[in-house]
Design a protein around this nucleic acid. Structure first.
Lengths: 334, 334
DNA sequence: TGTCATTATGCTTTCGTATGCATGGAGGGT
DNA sequence: ACCCTCCATGCATACGAAAGCATAATGACA
């Protein structure tokens, strides 16, 4: 019932292989024949079968993007640019969530015949990269890396952003600093914690254990942790959050508790998502070029597929500090 | 290099077709043979090739989800539940954006060999449904429908929500009502406008043309339209927004202009996205069960694929009004 | 012990495209 | 006029799984 390259061949008066070659612009096919084939394609409304092509060529031109939480705003801002960039490179994006256990995920990626994978939510101890390597399936790390790091990656360098933020914090009189950190088994949480501690130390500050909370990179973590932090006798006057989405939760908790931001407590995020600059939010945050980074991850995986032996690339994105409403003078009551 | 069902067959001492049947739990294969096959599968780490399966069976178990703007929060809240539900039904979700022209989209859907499509951003005059019908590719409408409506659909019934909202608005003394409506070529904008006008009329109110703005369902529309509405000599005291995402823009504009919400102007949204109930937003809005609706759309397309002649279903979702901070007494200065 | 039904399995072909190899035909050089 | 070269195209087959059909093995029954 579906139109095949044979139907096109019959109408164009050529053989099926010639149709195949003409459509992929093979130089061995004459211009005249190509024109005939294109005309036949148009008349029949022929569209090459992805399945046939995949089976024959061993390539699907599909890339898997592995994430955990699709509702999380952060991922929306990755998916959109990655999808667009891959489309421009002639690839299709397939979403995969880590609902099942890791072994199943890898099997599913293989089963769905992706040519490569973008890992956006790896934990440092994940076996996924190893399994992918065993299977010979190319992959790149996006944002997070695993301890097995012998692969292309796009990573954020948090040091400069935290350095700027910490020095502003000191200038504004903050001394009791709180932090809501991400899960310790993520490279992002680890590198941000290191960078934050270093930046604070460079400014004569430190992070007391009772002012530290940890949790997944979601709004609820920010909400719960802030509620807990502000419930202390002598609460922090400034809270660094694992990322912007966590900050939203922090802002929510503060509002619920009647704590003014930035009057009673200042909040600093990480990522500079579009909503961070909304007038109703105005979040101070550590910024980098997330969109470019997502596009770069797409480019890297395409490159790795097309040039399997290209040198491994770690593309780094520098951070800066964006000061907005949620950071102000430390509350005098402190 | 990849492991095929033939390799499994060889190891298990059976034929390739038997492997195929054993793995799909064909009752004609004995339990003992199935066990042998499964053992061989495990030892080799065999994963069936999607391409081979697709070519042979004519099915891909992939569903396309067609949206416009992946960054839009609204779609994140569709994608997540739809993805999950499809996974549970044994299907894979493929995102498609309407970047290219409509004809290209349909071709791409066919080329990528989806078994069915969920249309989430149809316009009433779109040719996509017609083309899909011509190609014999099953589809369902999600939220929006086109004028060619002979297909399964999940739709929102805005009447009850607007009725409740309008009566509360009157009780709170609002008389100058503004509206930021969606694009006139979407069924959702149309049905919401009808419902809003009817609800206002039932309460002795109406919508003056100078208090109406229109635009895409995004934050920027809300921002621009609100800036324009509030810039008038006698601005509305209450603005109904096309949806929550538009409302966020309205809140931003009000904040930027120094207009207090709800002191100077009240805002009502539509969708009740998770963020609407955040303490820092507290948006009054018209609510329905978006998550269930997305899952239902997934179920409908699976059903249509598996039972092509099943009766066409239009599943309707009732709305209610959720009153939060952004609605209050009409400003006395009015 | 022969026949038949039944069950389990194998054989063969198919799906649509891509590719290595064979071949036909045109053109140029001697 | 013949041979060689080169270009354009066709032929045959491969990719991996699924399904129709054929058949071997098993058991029941007369």
């Amino acid at each position: 019932m579906a139109i095949t390259s044979r139907d096109v061949a019959r109408l164009a008066g050529v053989s099926q292989p010639t149709v195949s070659r003409a459509l992929r612009d093979d130089p061995r096919v004459s211009e005249m024949t190509k024109a005939k084939v294109r005309a036949a394609v148009d008349r029949l409304g022929y569209v090459p079968s992805e399945a046939g092509r995949a089976l024959s060529s061993g390539r699907t031109r599909r890339i898997g993007l592995l994430v955990t939480d699709l509702e999380n705003q952060f991922y929306a801002h990755i998916i959109a640019p990655a999808h667009l960039q891959l489309e421009q490179l002639g690839y299709q994006l397939m979403l995969h969530t880590e609902t099942a256990d890791n072994e199943t995920i890898v099997e599913r990626l293989i089963a769905n015949g992706v040519d490569g994978v973008i890992l956006a939510t790896t934990t440092v101890d994940s076996v996924v990269p190893l399994r992918l390597r065993d299977r010979g399936l190319p992959f790149v790390y996006f944002n997070r890396t695993a301890s097995f790091a012998d692969a292309d990656a796009t990573v954020v360098e948090p040091a400069s952003g935290f350095a700027a933020a910490a020095s502003r914090a000191v200038a504004l009189g903050h001394s009791r600093i709180g932090a809501i950190l991400g899960p310790s088994n993520t490279s992002t949480a680890q590198s941000r914690e290191v960078a934050l501690r270093a930046a604070l130390a460079a400014n004569g500050l430190d992070l007391s254990p009772h002012n530290i909370r940890r949790g997944p990179f979601d709004t609820r973590t920010g909400d719960d942790a802030t509620t807990s932090l502000l419930g202390q006798l002598s609460p922090p006057t400034l809270i660094f959050c694992a990322n912007d989405v966590v900050s939203y939760g922090a802002l929510n908790a503060a509002r619920r508790l009647g704590a003014a931001v930035p009057g009673d407590v200042s909040i600093i995020g990480f990522d500079d998502l579009p909503a961070a600059s909304w007038p109703i939010i105005e979040l101070s945050t550590i910024a980098y070029d997330l969109t470019t980074m997502a596009r770069e991850a797409a480019r890297l995986i395409a490159r790795r597929i097309e040039q399997p032996d290209a040198p491994v690339l770690h593309v780094k994105y520098e951070t800066s500090f964006v000061e907005r409403r949620t950071l102000a003078l430390a509350s005098p009551s402190a």
